[in-house]
Computed example of a mutant assay.
Amino acid sequence: MRPPFDMIARLLKQERKMSFTLATWNINSVRLREGLVCKLMTEEAPDVLCLQECKSPVEKIPVEAFKALGYEHMVARGQKGYNGVAILSKIPMEEVAAHDFADLNHARHVAATLENGVTVHNFYVPAGGDVPDREVNEKFGQKLDYLTQMRDHFAAETPKKAILVGDLNIAPREDDVWSHKQLLKIVSHTPIEVEHLTDVMEAGKWVDVTRQDIPEGLLYSWWSYRARDWDAADKGRRLDHIWATPDISNAAHGSRVLRAARGWEQPSDHAPVFATFDL
C-alpha cells in the first residue's frame, strides 16, 4: 500500500531542511589576516562566514584560498584601506542588496539569499569616533544617522526568514560590557546609541539570537589592542551580533563566541561569533 500524498510531501519537505552554522567576524584586514580566516575555516568550518572591516577592494580579496577550503561563493563590497564587508559561503547564494545608509559612500552592507531561502544581511555599522556628541563629532552623527536609516528601511520592508549579523559597534546590555557604569559615556554603550539600536531591532522585529541562547552573564566579542594583557584585564564589549526574524529565530541554537581567536598570532581585536540554524 502506497503512503498518502500528503505524507510523501511532508517527508520531502523534511528532507529539504538544512542545518547550517553561521559566523560573523570583524577581521580588521582580510588580506593581512588571510591565514587567520583560513584557520577558522579549517578548524571551525562554518557554512557561512560574514566578515567586516575587510579593508580591501573586492578584486583583491584572497578568494582562491577560501575556495580551496570549500567556500566557493562570495558576495562583497570593498574599499581600499578601510570598511568592506563580505559573505563567504559553502552554500550557493545570490546577492540581493547592498545599502549605503546615511549616504556615506562606504562599503558597510551586503545581503545575499541562500539556496534555502534565508537572506543574510552583513553590516559594519560606523564606530562613531571618540566623543558621543554629534555637535562636535561628525562621526558620531553619521553613526546615529546610519542606524536611523537602518530602522526606517526595516520598518518599511519588514524582513522575513532573515538573519542580520555584523559588527554593529554597540554593546546594548549592561552585561555586554565590563563596566556599565564606567562606559555609559563611552561611544558604543551610550544610552542614545542603545536607543537607536533598539529602534532598529524593533522596526525589523529582530531577535537577538546570541542572548536568546545565552540570556545571562557577561559576554564580550571585542577587546581593545590597548590592553597589555587583554585576556587577564578582560575589559571587553559585545559589539558583534547575530539576529534573526521571529519566523526562524526558534530554529537557532549553539550560540558562542570563539574567544580563543582573540589570542591567535597577529589577531583581530574582535572574536568570531557563531550560531547554528536548523531550517
Rank of each mutant, 00 (worst) to 15 (best):
H106Q: 13
H106W: 04
H106F: 07
R108G: 06
R108A: 11
R108E: 12
H109A: 02
H109K: 14
H109C: 09
H109P: 10
H109F: 13
H109M: 13
H109W: 12
V110D: 03
V110I: 15
V110S: 07
V110A: 00
A111H: 12
A111P: 12
A111F: 02
A111G: 12
A111V: 10
A112L: 10
A112M: 10
A112H: 07
T113Y: 15
T113H: 15
L114F: 08
L114D: 02
L114T: 13
E115L: 13
E115S: 15
N116D: 15
G117P: 09
V118C: 15
V118R: 09
T119S: 08
T119I: 10
V120R: 01
V120Q: 00
V120Y: 00
V120S: 01
V120N: 01
V120I: 14
H121K: 02
H121M: 04
H121A: 05
N122G: 03
N122Q: 12
F123H: 10
Y124D: 07
V125R: 01
V125D: 07
V125E: 02
A127Q: 12
G128I: 11
G128N: 07
G128R: 00
G128P: 03
G129S: 05
G129P: 00
G129E: 03
G129H: 05
V131K: 13
P132Y: 02
D133I: 00
D133Y: 01
D133R: 11
D133Q: 06
D133E: 07
R134P: 04
R134D: 06
R134Q: 05
E135V: 02
E135C: 06
E135N: 07
V136W: 03
V136C: 04
N137I: 07
N137P: 04
N137Y: 03
N137K: 01
E138K: 02
E138R: 10
K139L: 06
K139V: 03
F140W: 00
F140Y: 09
F140K: 01
F140N: 03
G141M: 06
G141Q: 08
Q142R: 13
Q142K: 09
K143A: 03
L144R: 04
L144I: 14
L144P: 01
D145N: 15
D145K: 11
Y146W: 14
Y146R: 08
L147N: 03
L147V: 12
L147Q: 12
T148I: 12
T148H: 15
M150W: 06
M150H: 13
M150D: 04
R151Y: 10
R151Q: 14
D152S: 05
H153M: 08
H153A: 14
H153W: 09
F154D: 04
A155D: 09
A155H: 10
A156G: 11
E157I: 06
E157S: 05
E157Y: 02
E157F: 08
E157P: 07
E157W: 01
T158M: 06
T158I: 03
